[in-house]
């Protein structure tokens, strides 16, 4: 356990020294704040930019607070995912490529601890960033529109966090299976995109698909209650996370560290 903590601490310090603790939360805050602000100021923006023909009447319905929050949240499944994948793809592949992994793992370090400490470090960053970012969305939405109940905020936060955890885990897996951070990132993104599109298109067939968690979180905010399929989808997500994590360790262990 103390070895795991040593590895984990190193991850946290590394992310501090390379400023990930600064730019990832800031990106998430910017993404999160953008939505309530633009929704609120859209009529003024259109007016001041002009370009509408004289006399045109253009009514923009004021969105509900829940809808604003939901669309703010959806930012994280596009640009947010991109940021996460880019930040995580080199986590193992990069160390192996540079050779520092061989320096570390020639010491009596458990492979399980090596992989899981990195995974846990990335997750901590993602959950904290998501929390800060989403909290600022919630705050601005409350200030400009209406306050969404804090319970709904937390529930949708956890559902989204679960989906992003899955993204992190898949990226860690490809980072441990492949030698190139770029390829690992590309495959992870492609996979996340494919799953999202597929589950979106076949939503009536794939209700338990983990990518549906994002739409269930949105449904909770707009309709006020969770769809029935939330629980199976969450369980499926947890199982997939566990499987990918174990596979990451397994695949990594079988690799030769020097080639």
């Amino acid at each position: 356990m103390s070895q795991w903590m040593t590895l984990f601490q190193k991850e946290i310090i590394e992310m501090w020294r390379n400023f990930k603790w600064i730019w990832v939360p800031i990106t998430f805050i910017l993404l999160g704040v953008k939505e309530p602000l633009t929704s609120y100021y859209l009529p003024q923006i259109i007016k001041s930019v002009g370009g509408l023909p004289e006399g045109a009447v253009f009514e923009i319905p004021t969105p509900t607070a829940g809808a604003v929050l939901a669309s703010g949240l959806s930012q994280y499944s596009t640009i947010g995912v991109l940021v996460i994948v880019l930040g995580t793809m080199g986590i193992i592949a990069g160390e192996r490529k540079s050779g520092v992994a061989a320096m570390i793992l020639v010491k009596p370090v458990s492979y399980l601890s090596y992989v899981t400490s990195k995974w846990a470090g990335s997750l901590l960053l993602v959950w904290i960033s998501l929390f800060i970012g989403y909290l600022s969305t919630w705050y601005y939405t409350g200030q400009l529109f209406d306050w969404v109940p804090i319970g709904e905020f937390f529930q949708s936060f956890v559902l989204y966090g679960l989906w992003l955890t899955l993204i992190v885990t898949v990226t860690v897996f490809f980072s441990s299976a492949l030698l190139s951070p770029g390829v690992a990132g590309f495959i992870s993104l492609a996979l996340a995109l494919a799953v999202s599109i597929l589950s979106g298109a076949l939503s009536h067939l794939l209700e338990w698909s983990p990518s549906q968690l994002t739409s269930y979180a949105g449904a909770l905010l707009t309709a006020g209650e969770l769809p029935d399929d939330t629980l199976p989808a969450s369980l499926v997500a947890l199982v997939i996370i566990l499987i990918f994590l174990l596979f990451s360790v397994f695949v990594f262990k079988r690799k030769e560290l020097a080639s």
Partner: peptide
């Protein structure tokens, strides 16, 4: 065993002292 590769690589963001302590703790 202790092993030194031909081209040793370290975490560039650590100081030499930090790296040794890190590796020492990992070694038990």
């Amino acid at each position: 065993i202790g092993y030194l590769p031909q081209f040793p690589v370290f975490y560039d963001w650590m100081s030499g002292f930090e790296f040794l302590q890190y590796v020492g703790k990992l070694a038990g």
